[in-house]
Computed example of a mutant assay.
Amino acid sequence: MLGNLTKHTHHSAWHTMHNVVCGGAMLQDRNLEAVEAAGIPVQVIHGGEDQVVPVECSLHLKAKLPTAEIRLMDGCDHRTVIFRGEKGFGFAEELRTFWSDSDQKQRLPA
C-alpha cells in the first residue's frame, strides 16, 4: 500500500479514488437496479469521519439501492473501520452477522 501511495501526490491520489468510487458509482446504476431486482442484500459500512471517500457516496448508493443497509461508524475514518476492527469497532463481526442473516433469508421459502 505504501509503495502505491508514493507514486501519487496526495492531491492526485485523492482525486483518482474519488472519481473511481463516486464517479464510477453513477455508471453502476444499471447494475444496482439488477441487484435490487434480484433481492440481493447489501450492507455498506462507512466511517463517519472518512476524508477519503465522502459519506455522500454511500448516501448516493442508498438513493439508488433503497434496500441497502448503510452503517456509519462514528469516530472512524477510512482506515479505522478495517484496521481497528479488532479493537472494538466490530467491523468483522458485523459482516459475519450480515452474511449469516443474508444466507438464512435466501434459504427460506418465499
Rank of each mutant, 00 (worst) to 15 (best):
G47F: 01
G48S: 03
R84N: 05
A92M: 06
Q51D: 13
C22L: 09
V20H: 06
A13T: 00
T16D: 12
W14A: 11
V52P: 14
G24C: 04
E33N: 12
N31Q: 14
F91W: 04
A63R: 14
G48Y: 00
E49K: 12
V52Q: 14
G88A: 00
V35R: 05
L61W: 11
F89R: 04
R79K: 05
K7Y: 03
G24E: 05
K64C: 11
D29Y: 09
T16Q: 12
V20C: 07
A38H: 09
H60C: 14
P41Y: 02
S58K: 03
A63Y: 05
A34L: 15
G39Q: 10
V52M: 15
L59P: 03
V42Y: 07
T9G: 10
I45W: 00
P41T: 04
N19R: 11
R84G: 02
G47Y: 02
F91H: 10
N4K: 04
L59I: 06
C76K: 02
N31G: 15
V81A: 08
H78L: 06
L65Q: 11
D74F: 00
I70F: 05
R84I: 00
G24D: 06
H8W: 07
V81P: 11
I40H: 06
H11L: 12
A37Q: 14
G90E: 02
L65K: 10
